[in-house]
Amino acid sequence: MTRVARPHTLTFGRPVPDAEPDPDGRWRLTWTGTAVMGILNVTPDSFSDGGKHAALDTALHAARRMRDAGVLILDIGGESTRPGADPVPAHTELDRLLPVIRALAGEGVVLSVDTMKPEVAAGALRAGAHLINDVTGLRDPEMVRVCAEAGAPACVMHMQGEPRTMQKNPVYADVVAEVHGFLRAQAARVLAAGVPDVLLDPGIGFGKTLEHNLALLRATHALTAGPHPVLIAASRKRLIDYLAGVPDAAQRDPGSLAIHLHAARQGAALVRAHDAAGHVQALRVQAALEP
């Protein structure tokens, strides 16, 4: 069977790298097949690379290496959302994020900010970020307002509970129906409120057991069949340890790649990865091998 790589579009309310203006005064970023969102954690306590990029020079070096490797989007995080993580004040998060965003603005890569706080999102967008990645799925109306007013699309992710407690006892009657239903309904709500576009993320590892995660990954095609681009973000997550016996998160890149190649074959628009260069390479080879 011949598989045709699907084109994807993400619409912005202001200029972004490599996007083209449309007659409605918006900017459309288009690509074909599965692109990579590279992870840049500028936190001291992220689950696999905490502290590695906390200094500005090391963060910028890592960001530019990912850009040069061919990532489409760089996702910068200033607060850990690992299971059990405690929140940090908005000013601390901004102190970590803003120097990196300001230094990278204008360097030819779309900048996403991984935050749950509207005030952090607003500050990051003013500093030059383009996209908001909200693990709470834009449940806060203030986050919706911030994105709408800035013309910034958002990644709507599903999470049951909140980071400190989400893995204690997640329960679903039908995890695929419930997660996909939430994502579609939330997308409709935020678009109606003026957010220019959305990515959908089923939230692998966020309030899900191993069985829940596997069910969602196997059903990726059902989500990608809809009108919105889908992001799959399984990089270095605990399910890889459960499946392959890899307790050290930094050693889970092969398992991450296996999941993300599966997601690409299922039509995912983006995969979010720590090993961004490795993912770009593997996805290019997989795309060339498709008949």
Score class of each variant (00 low, 15 high):
D57C: 10
E290I: 08
I76V: 15
A148C: 14
G161A: 06
R28G: 07
A150P: 02
T11P: 01
H228M: 02
A150Q: 03
G70M: 06
A219T: 02
A282C: 10
A268M: 11
L138E: 00
G13N: 01
A59E: 02
N169I: 01
E20V: 14
G78Q: 00
L191I: 15
V190Y: 00
T220C: 15
L283W: 00
L104R: 01
R164Y: 04
P87S: 13
A121N: 05
T11A: 12
P99R: 04
A282I: 11
A288I: 02
A35H: 02
P17H: 07
L10A: 07
G267E: 03
A287C: 09
T58C: 05
P83K: 04
R64A: 12
H61R: 14
P44E: 15
V135D: 01
G38F: 02
S235G: 07
L183F: 05
S256K: 03
D275S: 06
L125W: 02
A258P: 02
E162F: 09
Y172K: 04
I204Q: 01
I39K: 01
P83A: 11
L183H: 02
L216H: 08
S46F: 03
Q251M: 11
A105E: 09
L243E: 07
P83W: 05
T11N: 03
R67V: 12
N213V: 11
K52W: 12
H53E: 09
T115K: 12
G226L: 06
I232Y: 06
M159G: 04
G205H: 09
P291A: 14
R26C: 02
Q281Y: 06
L60T: 10
A188Y: 07
R139M: 10
D45S: 12
I240K: 00
A121L: 04
G207N: 06
E20R: 15
T165P: 01
R14P: 12
L239W: 01
P44T: 04
Q281W: 11
F182Y: 15
L283H: 00
V195M: 01
A233V: 02
I240F: 06
A148S: 14
T165E: 11
V144I: 15
V71N: 07
G123S: 08
G108A: 08
D24N: 15
A192F: 11
V190C: 08
A154V: 08
I204F: 09
R238C: 03
M1T: 14
H212L: 04
R218N: 15
G51L: 13
G161Q: 00
R236A: 10
P196D: 03
E119K: 04
V36G: 14
A264W: 01
G205E: 07
